[in-house]
């Protein structure tokens, strides 16, 4: 029992469960079946959290190497803008093939943007927070340039599907996020990538002397982060069926970083937890949904969130726990979540 209590993920998980239970009682439809699809508050939470889960996933890898990526929101805006611009130029916006191709192009653009970040950090040696601040500032300008400052509306069925469609009774956006989580989990835990990442984040010097090509790995995580941000941008823009270069992904970098930290990955790098990040992202999304559902006035939403965040951050400070609970409890290492 004490082992469970000591786990860093205990409090976030407990809060999530409480929030979900609260939702179960307050919403008249928590999970129901309608037209062969699953509907209800719970499904909305899963669907709505998809972009944040994706962004936070990339952020986890970046933070594991001791970096940070502030540009994710701008990358989201750019990828949405690219996709909507190209789709609006299509003769037939409902052509599945063309839409898929366009999605591919948008993601490719996002990967290139990630490569830019990675090169600034790993090759030029700029501090990650500043290196990615550049794209954060300029990226939104680029997105505005692509959309010519307008909001581009699209009426593409296939495009809308990635946000609001259903497949096998489940929301497509959720499936995309789930697939991404599975992919990253496999990539980091079934290959040696996770080990090498944690090694680089844990001690760059020792990693170099053990023959690890830290530079290539660092670039790679920024590329992955860019790609996932791009995917999140597509889901966001498909959801509103338009490209909004101003509000797409606005401030999402902060939520994503928060999700990672709540999930037990330290900002200094090293050990990381994919499951923790997913938990953190869903928690943040659920928190937003719950405050509305329980009738906390809309104006208090953010305040409520802030209080939970402050509590969570303090609960994860070893010094705070030591001072409050009287004795020092060693921080349990976050274990790899895939037992192989």
């Amino acid at each position: 029992m004490t082992a469970i209590l000591k786990n860093r993920l205990f409090w976030p998980a407990a809060i999530l469960v409480v929030l979900l239970v609260v939702n179960m009682f307050t919403s008249n439809q928590f999970v129901t079946v309608r037209d062969g699809h699953l509907f209800g508050t719970f499904i909305d939470i899963l669907r709505g959290s998809a972009p944040l889960v994706l962004v936070a996933l990339g952020m986890t890898l970046v933070i594991a190497t001791g970096g940070i990526d502030l540009s994710v929101g701008s990358v989201m805006a750019i990828s949405g803008a690219v996709a909507c611009l190209l789709i609006s130029d299509l003769g037939n916006q409902n052509s599945v093939g063309s839409v898929l191709l366009i999605i591919g192009i948008a993601i490719l653009v996002s990967l290139v943007l990630g490569l830019w970040n990675g090169a600034l950090v790993a090759v030029i040696g700029i501090q990650p927070i500043i290196a990615t601040l550049i794209l954060m500032v300029a990226g939104r300008g680029i997105a505005q340039l692509i959309t010519d400052g307008q909001i581009i509306n699209v009426q593409s069925g296939p495009y809308a599907t990635i946000a609001s469609g259903f497949f096998l009774a489940l929301p497509v956006a959720f499936l995309i996020a789930a697939a991404a989580v599975a992919l990253i989990t496999l990539l980091t835990r079934r290959t040696a990538l996770g080990l090498l990442l944690e090694s680089v984040g844990g001690s760059p010097t020792a990693s170099r002397l053990a023959g690890i090509g830290a530079r290539r790995i660092t670039i790679m995580v920024y590329v992955v982060s860019g790609g996932f941000a791009g995917l999140a941008g597509l889901i966001y823009s498909a959801n509103i069926k338009s490209a909004d270069s101003i509000s797409a992904g606005n401030l999402i970098e902060l939520d994503a970083i928060l999700a990672v930290v709540i999930g037990g990955t330290a900002l200094i790098g090293g050990r990381f937890s994919i499951a923790g990040t997913v938990l953190g992202a869903i928690l943040i999304q659920t928190l937003g949904v719950t405050v509305v559902a329980v009738g906390v006035p809309a104006k208090a939403t953010l305040l409520f969130k802030a209080i939970v965040v402050v509590a969570l951050c303090l609960s994860q400070s070893p010094t705070f726990r030591q001072k409050v609970f009287g004795r020092f409890k060693p921080r349990p290492a976050v274990r790899a979540e895939v037992p192989a």
Partner: peptide, 28 residues
């Protein structure tokens, strides 16, 4: 500072160099 990676387990520390030489795509 230049040898062990303290956060990682004994197993991970032992296989680190061999794994690095194989590249990340070929896990042991």
């Amino acid at each position: 500072t230049e040898g062990i990676i303290g956060d990682l387990s004994v197993r991970e520390n032992i296989i680190l160099a061999l794994q690095a030489s194989r590249g990340w795509t070929r896990p042991i």
